[in-house]
Design a protein around this nucleic acid. Structure first.
Length: 423
DNA sequence: AAGCAGAGGTAAGGTCTC
DNA sequence: CCAAGAGACCTTACCTCT
């Protein structure tokens, strides 16, 4: 009778967006290439055929025909950079202008979301053929529960990790990095140890040697704010964090976060690999080409606002959801953010209804400063198929309250309206 | 009648992630 | 000077219902 160890893998595709472009344009291999660029239309950044010449197969487009970072205009950020571009200090989420100063000769390409989604599906199905318990963590990242997969225990998971890497390369031509550990927390950190195209196996006993020397920031969930606060308390590494009393951490970070910090510093994490989940919210937001003023640019702003609401309505409908709460998000020119929410009386996936509720939100924010970004968000989501049933039970509850004399008479009219819309 | 606890909703802001 | 878009989740405050 052997003991079966919990073996969780975290798998991260290497420079996913950029690597996909290198499959299409192999002539760019080894060159600094960045993907990104915010609002730029897809066509603008693609290499063009010379006038009068026939369209060329992508792999024959001369390197000289690709657009360069130094010629980029606009407000975007870098999505991914090839390893050659990273040599210059370029990284994800960096502003394009700053990246252009670091490496003006880098080639810049827009994100091809269709292609990214295609490769995302391909690599994930390659995995589930081998290990079915897969948790989606975005287009290029997953957790896999190897515990009960045949061979999942061999060499701590290394054998299976290698097999999965080979299957993904066979299906896509792309490489990935894998970390295998007793839980998601440690697996996520382990997948960073050996990049690109590497495997790293971590056991509980490796905690003092492999985890504790790392910066706190390496823990998934400790961002810049928490890291800064820890630093002020003289805590730089995970080992230093593990050495703190739980009570000390709770005193400084609150009951929930404090206890969590203590747990993760000791490598403890019992979260399961979750294969299915329901969306909680959907949103659309956009940063303008230039900052807009609510009064002076009213027409432009209004058109963008309506468009966002309609797009959000389409998103909800396409995915089969309806929302009870509609919210807005503003980013002012000083980067300060304001949000407002409005819960409606029915569920909706309709652009003009969304626009109505979002409009009510807009009346409750200051519009003195210029705006940089506008967003519309839908939350309180339910499956469109369940809406009728939910409305019905909501109506019954209201009526029951009425008969019990528990709510004001105005609300009786509300219940009547809901009924009227439905039946 | 008043007060309390717990659950759950709503709203605003913030943090973190890819 | 630079800082996208989408989504999950947390905290705090305040209300309402039971």
């Amino acid at each position: 009778m052997t003991t079966r160890l919990r073996r969780i893998a975290h798998l991260d595709m290497d420079a996913f967006f950029a690597s996909i472009e290198l499959l299409r344009y192999p002539q760019l291999k080894g060159l600094p290439v960045v993907i990104g660029g915010g609002r730029r239309k897809a066509d603008d950044a693609l290499p063009r055929a010379q006038p009068g010449q026939p369209a060329r197969e992508s792999r024959f487009v001369p390197v000289a025909d690709f657009p360069l970072l130094k010629d980029y205009v606009g407000r975007g950020v870098i999505t991914t950079a090839t390893y050659a571009a990273r040599q210059f200090g370029i990284g994800s989420a960096m502003g394009m202008m700053r990246a252009a100063r670091l490496c003006p000769q880098a080639i810049v390409l827009p994100v091809d979301f269709e292609e990214v989604r295609k490769y995302s599906r391909l690599f994930k199905s390659a995995i589930t053929e081998i290990a079915p318990l897969l948790e989606d963590r975005g287009v290029d990242e997953v957790y896999i529960d190897l515990t009960d997969v045949p061979g999942g225990q061999r060499a701590g998971g290394r054998v299976l990790a290698r097999l999965i890497q080979k299957a993904i390369f066979g299906a896509t031509g792309l490489t990935c990095s894998v970390g295998v550990a007793p839980n998601k927390l440690l697996a996520k950190m382990a997948s960073e140890f050996n990049k690109p195209n590497g495997i790293s196996i971590v056991y509980e006993a490796d905690l003092p040697t492999h985890i504790w020397p790392l910066k706190c920031r390496k823990i998934n969930g400790i961002g810049p704010k928490a890291d800064e606060k820890l630093a002020r308390l003289g805590i730089q590494t995970i080992g230093e964090l593990a050495a703190q009393d739980r009570a000390f951490l709770v005193a400084h970070f609150g009951k929930s976060t404090g206890a969590w910090l203590h747990e993760v510093a000791w490598g403890r994490d019992e979260r399961p690999v979750v294969t299915e989940s329901e969306p909680v919210s959907m949103s659309r937001e956009t940063t303008f080409e230039r900052d807009l003023h609510a009064v002076r640019d009213k027409a432009a702003l209004s058109a963008i606002f309506t468009d966002l609401c309609n797009k959000l309505g389409e998103d909800l409908s396409t995915k089969g959801y309806a929302a009870k709460t509609i919210g807005i998000k503003l980013r002012y020119d000083d980067f300060k953010i304001a949000t407002r929410d409005q819960t409606g009386q029915t569920f909706t996936a309709d652009g003009s209804t969304i626009r109505l509720l979002a409009g009510q939100c807009l009346k409750r924010v200051s519009l003195d400063k210029k705006l940089r970004l506008l967003g519309v968000r839908a939350s309180g989501l339910v499956k469109a198929a369940d809406v009728a049933e939910l409305q019905n039970s909501q109506q019954k509850r209201l009526l029951r309250q009425c008969t019990q004399g528990l709510i004001a008479i105005e609300n009786v009219a509300v219940a009547g309206v809901i009924g009227g819309q439905l039946f």
